[in-house]
Design a protein around this nucleic acid. Structure first.
Length: 311
DNA sequence: CGTATTTGACCGGCGC
DNA sequence: GCGCCGGTCAAATACG
């Protein structure tokens, strides 16, 4: 079941209001169930969140483009379309062959794949040359890991999120002067990958796409972590490093240590923090979302919010 | 010298 | 079947 975003959306992100001046955490899009809109909002489940209150910092907002997950529980989060899309504007995801909907990619399946890889690693190494010449047996289609992506206004391409990444590839992106970098989590047994590319529309925006779930706690506490971490020590006053906190379903050291209610709902295995599930995924495109007792005021200390407001 | 990055080649999926 | 393209591999290279 497709919850959201794929490369397809990424390609369409020009339709999205990726940059806005909303100082508060508000949706800039809608999230109709099981659909992909082609409206100007284009991307289901897109929302902005302030990720840096440090004036002058290169970071302004993290734009979570959405997620891609087959988790029904997660999907249920979006079963309440506040603003139903007109049928003419709705594209049924299942009927879109190019959509990167992932088929039931459970962690179990992923682990099996991983174990298989480990077992065969030695043999694979011995035959790596032959492998290139002899066509190996056709491997079954590997299920996609859950993915989510967000846009970060940053001058730095690679943002420090606390995890250690090893770059394993870089490719030129079609229709974009900026290359796409491929990273893999260096922790043994953790197959999380991420892609980092700069938006061709706005080169100040870095689009980071995470795939998979970390099987380990965050090894390094990033300096000056920003993002949705409601810790003033992370939000303000620590500039210079382009860091942010990635929502992770299993390990969220920055969330649960600060405000437990901001932790993730492991029961649903959702890549989103619970506060998204509880509140933010019932969006309205109207100004009702922007009322004074909006999200951030419940989440962040007022001082932080004040600092987080760009300009 | 160990580790990380670079970069060209390779592979598989997909559309024509 | 062929070419394009995204993603990955792995040898070469850079770096601390």
């Amino acid at each position: 079941m497709l919850a959201v975003v794929s490369d397809q959306f990424m390609e369409k992100r020009g339709e999205l209001k990726t940059e806005n001046s909303m100082p508060n955490s508000t949706f800039s899009g809608q999230f109709p169930a099981n659909t992909t809109t082609t409206t100007s909002y284009g991307f289901p489940g897109i929302f902005d969140m302030p990720c840096d209150g440090d004036k002058g910092s290169s970071l302004g907002f993290i734009h979570l483009l959405g997620i891609q997950d087959d988790n029904p529980s997660l999907f249920d989060l979006f079963q309440t379309p506040v603003i139903p899309s007109p049928p003419s504007e709705v594209v049924n995801t299942p009927a879109t062959p190019n959509s990167l909907s992932i088929s039931s990619s459970s962690n179990e399946a992923a682990n099996d794949e991983q174990n298989k890889t480990t077992v065969e690693e030695e043999d694979e190494q011995n035959q790596k040359k032959a492998k290139k010449q002899l066509k190996p047996k056709k491997t079954p289609k590997r299920p996609r890991e859950p993915r989510f992506a967000f846009m970060t206004k940053s001058e730095a391409d690679h943002l420090d999120d606390g995890y250690r990444w090893r770059k394993y590839g870089q490719k030129a992106v079609k229709n974009s002067p900026f290359p796409r970098s491929y990273y893999r989590c260096t922790t043994a047994g953790c197959g999380v990958k991420k892609r980092v590319e700069r938006s061709s529309d706005d080169q100040s925006i870095v689009v980071t796409t995470y795939e998979g779930t970390h099987t380990h706690p965050c090894p390094v506490a990033p300096r000056g972590s920003i993002g949705v971490m409601p810790d003033s020590s992370g939000f303000g006053g620590i500039g210079g490093t382009s860091s942010f906190v990635i929502p992770q379903p299993q390990f969220q050291p920055y969330f649960h240590n600060s405000i437990p209610s901001l932790g993730f709902t492991n029961a649903t295995n959702s890549p989103f923090p619970t506060f998204f599930q509880e509140r933010q995924f019932y969006p309205s495109l109207s100004s009702s979302l922007l009322r004074d007792d909006g999200l951030l005021q419940d989440i962040l200390p007022s001082q932080v919010r004040k600092e987080a407001k760009p300009e």
